[in-house]
Every structure is written in C-alpha cells, then in structure tokens.
C-alpha cells in the first residue's frame, strides 16, 4: 500500500532473487534463451521447462530462462512466440493444449504458426480407480459399462485425457458417461468417493495417492508398458485399441536458422542422457522421446489431424 512497504518488499525480493550464471559462450547465436509457457508457475508444463532449462543452458552455451504467459488457454503465449524474431532467442513449451486451443478457438496465432522444433518427453496417461472400490481390473469397469452404465472422469473438457476415454468408449461400444472436470484434483475427489468408476491422469499427478495406497492403477494408455510399472497392462493388451501420447517439447517461431535447429537437435539427446537430469525425470515416469525438427513437425500435424476428427465426431466443432 505505502511506498515504504513497496520499497521494503522490493528489496527483500531482490535479495532473494537467484542470480543467473553466464555459461561459457559457444557458437549459439544469442546469449539468453527464453522458454515461454502458458502453464502457471508450479504447474506440470512449468516444472518441465524449469527442470529442462537447468541442463539446457550448459548444453547450448546460453542462459535459459522460463517465462510464464497466462491467458487465452495458451493462445497468448503462442502469439507472443509467433511474433518473436526467429533468431533462436524465444521458444514455446508445447503440450497438447496448444493444439486443442487452436482447433476449438481458432485464435489469430495457432499451433500452425509455430515450427515444432524438437520433442523431449511423452508423459504416460493411466486409468485408475479407488483402492476401496469394487473394481480390480479394467475389465471390471468395462463390464459394468457393458451391462449397465459406466461413469468415467476426465480432468478437462477439451483434453487428450477426455479424448482417450471417448476413444475407449467408441472402440468398445459400451455405455459410459464421460464426465469432464475443472482439473485433476476435482476429478480425484470424485474417484476417491466412488462417484466415478475410473479416472484418467498422468503418473506424476497421481503419485501422492498411489504411494498412500488410495488408488489402484487399472491400465496404461501407452503403446508399451511403462518402465517402472511393468506389472501394469496396457489398454491394448486388454483388447481395446487405444493408445495416446501426451507430448512435451519445444516449438519455435517460423524461419529458424539451420544452425540453431542443429544446436537444439544435438543438445536434447545429450541432456536426456545426463544422469542428473535422469534422476529428476525418471521418478515422474516421463519417457524420453526425442524427435528432431522434421519428425516433430510430422508428429504434430498427425496429432492435430486426429484431434480435429475427434472434436468433429463429438460435435464440439464443425
């Protein structure tokens, strides 16, 4: 309120401010790289970039900072990056959100106004139920839906999680309500109190409940079994042809110089091999999944095409 307090608080914060070290300059064209995310501080996308940035700095020979730009379901952050100079200084941390927002809202700058540069991780999605509930396996849940009516939960209305449940529903032909929520926590409560037969989420966000034995994993929505969870069957093994890939990667403004592309394509596999970085991402079951510029562009186009047909099928867009 008062100027005195403001100055005092400013000084306190300045004192706590982490200082940025200047890494030995190699041939990366700029000194500071900004990674832009639409995630708010502390959310999954933000933590991913902040962890990555610590190892990327030395690997690229530049300072790497993370900037959170909220608003517009991610559209504001995409617009900021799309309007930046393609000199290797500004990048966007991708998640499926930027494709959903583009397709649903058609903002001025969508996923197609960026160049998908490299993919870093796939974040495995799993199906789970309350440990105290009646369901022991995915088949139990499916049987209930086949014989009566299932109640399945997804964290957000326009999300890969919901899409995966709708796909499961359509390949199995069972009768289930797919209930979307205001985020994973909201849904977790409805799984724990038995309102929902099962929910879908990422291992990292389920960890607290999992370790406490409050929830039971039913199946993985990945193509192969998840390392570290080798007993958990995939949904495909259970006989339903559904697998999704929640990606975490980097996109750039269009027209990036080839040497910057090459620098990133060289840096990411090296960073992923770093034992210190492994110690951070492996407990969260993030799967290293490096894709280079060309592969990632194809991957994103394919993902967007699948998502578009899903949204049209479910009547969300025309």
């Amino acid at each position: 309120m008062t100027r005195r307090t403001l100055v005092a608080a400013g000084l306190t914060l300045a004192a706590l401010c982490p200082f940025v070290t200047v890494a030995g300059a190699q041939d990366y064209p700029v000194k500071t790289i900004t990674l832009v995310t639409h995630s708010s501080p502390g959310a999954g996308g933000d933590i991913f970039l902040r962890d990555l940035s610590r190892f990327l700095g030395p690997a690229l020979g530049a300072n790497v900072v993370v900037e959170n730009i909220s608003g517009g379901s991610g559209a504001t952050a995409v617009a900021r990056v799309a309007n930046s100079r393609p000199d290797g200084s500004v990048f966007y941390g991708t998640t499926p959100t930027f494709i959903y927002t583009t397709l649903l809202s058609e903002p001025e700058f969508g996923y197609d106004s960026l160049d998908p540069l490299v993919n870093v991780f796939f974040d495995p999605e799993v199906l789970y139920t309350a440990a105290t509930g009646p369901f022991q396996s995915l088949e139990d849940v499916m049987t209930k839906a086949r014989e009566g009516r299932g109640q399945w939960g997804a964290a957000n209305p326009a999300s890969l999680e919901r899409q995966s449940l709708e796909m499961l529903k359509s390949v199995s032909g069972v009768n289930a309500a797919v209930v979307s929520h205001d985020g994973g926590g909201d849904m977790m409560i409805n799984v724990l109190n038995g309102t929902l037969d099962m929910g879908v989420g990422e291992i990292q966000e389920l960890k607290g409940q999992l370790e406490a034995g409050e929830i039971r994993l039913l199946a993985a929505l990945t193509a192969d079994r998840i390392p570290g969870y080798d007993d958990l069957p995939t949904v495909r093994e259970a006989g339903y042809d559904v697998a999704v890939r929640k990606f975490r990667g980097i996109a750039a403004p269009k027209g990036l110089p080839p040497e910057v592309v090459a620098a990133w394509e060289a840096a990411i596999p090296r960073v992923l091999e770093d034992p210190e970085f492994k110690a951070i991402y492996e407990p969260d079951s993030l799967q290293p999944a490096f894709l280079d510029d060309e592969e990632y562009s194809q991957f994103i186009d394919g993902f967007a095409a699948d998502t578009r047909s899903f949204l049209i099928e479910t009547g969300v867009i025309q």
Partner: peptide, 20 residues
C-alpha cells in the same frame, strides 16, 4: 469463456483473451 462440459467457446466473440 469455455463451456465446462463440452469445452466449446461461448460468448468470446473470437477474442482469445476471453477464453478463460
């Protein structure tokens, strides 16, 4: 903003700042 069940846009008039 965004429809809580379907995820479609409502009354945003094409302005992405109103999505949330």
């Amino acid at each position: 903003g965004t429809d809580p069940v379907s995820g479609a846009n409502r009354f945003t008039f094409g302005n992405s700042d109103l999505l949330n």
